[in-house]
Design a protein around this nucleic acid. Structure first.
Length: 113
DNA sequence: GTTCTCACA
DNA sequence: TGTGAGAA
């Protein structure tokens, strides 16, 4: 492992965090989850797709993609869809908290109280 | 290329 | 729970 790879990883993560939205096809290919399954999960309310523009192409942001991967991993551990969804939602809440802290920190830093 | 509904296992 | 097919 070089510092290069670490830096790349960090940068990649931040880039993803910025705002990455891909079509369902890409998501299915990346996550390895069939298209029907992704729609199926969304139908259950586990994930949410962001429809952009006039087209019908569902766009999934990094959070949703992460959610899908998380659910997949959880189910691989023997969790059921509902259980996995619950766990993922809890994790997502934590991520959201971190995001809120990050945003707040940036604001405070800019205002320099 | 994507989406939807209905139905089946 | 996950997938099939046809239709738009």
């Amino acid at each position: 492992m070089n510092e290069n790879e670490q830096s790349v990883n960090v940068l990649l993560d931040f880039d993803l965090l910025g705002k990455l939205v891909v079509g369902i096809g890409e998501v299915s290919d990346i996550t390895g989850v069939p298209l029907r399954q992704i729609r199926y999960w969304e139908e259950k309310g586990i994930i949410h797709s962001s429809k952009e523009g006039e087209g019908t192409t569902r766009k999934y942001d990094y959070l949703n993609i992460k959610k899908i991967v998380l659910v997949k991993e959880l189910m691989d551990d023997g969790y059921t869809l509902d259980a996995a969804a619950k766990k993922v939602e809890e994790r997502m809440r934590n991520v959201n908290e971190v995001f809120a802290k990050l945003a707040k920190r940036s604001t405070e830093d800019s205002q320099e109280k």
